[in-house]
């Protein structure tokens, strides 16, 4: 199963690397988001550092949605998904591979967006770099598990990519709240222990939904 997942992920990332259309639009979207959010508040009333965690996680979520939408859309042309399903790869392997490719996609967007956040919002990255990486990873795993499943469902509906945000965003609520709160706690220099309940919440979310979505995926593709 893990080998299948790896092969599928490599296939998706190769397509993404050769076309670069999805990742470029997500990157530009993330950068634009950072800039636009800055002007949505009065900078004399709210310090940019207070905005930063919220902006980071909203941009993270929405740019993630862009990648998730593409994940199964690329399998729609010429019914490529049928080929995938007919291949000897296991169903859960296909799901985990897709989710893994999305995880890499989200990570690449963050690798560019975080330095931009540091630059634009004067974000003191050095102080919290390592815990922030942990929060990012936990949040991205949950986001990709749920998002990949709903992406596979949304492409087969009449609404196609319009449906994904409607289905996925309520599921991202605990992720965004947990990640933004723990980031804010760390930023304000509170002891790390205060961020622990939020991190536990993120970890529990990941465990439940990676397992739940992997088990649910086969039900969404039977013919």
């Amino acid at each position: 199963m893990m080998r299948d997942a790896w092969v599928i992920a490599k296939k998706d990332l190769t397509i993404e690397f050769r076309t670069r259309s999805g990742i470029l639009s997500a990157l530009v979207f993330a950068l634009l988001g950072l800039v636009i959010f800055y002007y949505a508040w009065d900078p004399t009333a709210v310090a940019s550092i207070d905005l930063a965690p919220g902006v980071l996680w909203v941009v993270f979520t929405f740019s993630g949605l862009l990648g998730l939408n593409r994940s199964f859309a690329i399998e729609q042309s010429e019914r490529a998904i049928d080929g995938l399903l007919a291949s000897p790869a296991s169903r859960s392997g296909i799901f985990l591979g897709k989710a893994l490719a999305n995880l890499v996609f989200v990570a690449v967007v963050q690798i560019v967006a975080i330095p931009a956040l540091v630059l634009f919002y004067n974000f003191p990255i050095a102080r919290i770099a390592i815990p922030l990486m942990g929060i990012l990873l936990l949040a991205a795993i949950g986001l990709c598990a749920v998002g990949t499943l709903f992406s596979s469902m949304a492409v087969n509906t009449k609404l196609a990519e319009l449906l994904l945000p409607m289905l996925a965003l309520p599921f991202f609520v605990p992720i965004v709240i947990g990640a933004a709160q723990s980031t804010a706690k760390l930023l304000s220099g509170r002891p790390a222990i205060e961020a622990m309940p939020w991190l536990k919440l993120l970890l529990a979310f990941d465990l439940v939904f990676v397992l739940g979505c992997t088990l649910a995926y086969p039900f969404t593709i039977e013919e």
Partner: peptide, 27 residues
């Protein structure tokens, strides 16, 4: 059949989500 399977998956996952939303907003 697809409608029934998709909505069943969402119906089940939605029930799993409720405690997480509750916990996160309760904090």
């Amino acid at each position: 059949s697809m409608r029934a399977r998709y909505s069943a998956v969402l119906g089940i996952l939605g029930a799993f989500l409720i405690p997480f939303i509750h916990l996160s907003v309760y904090l």
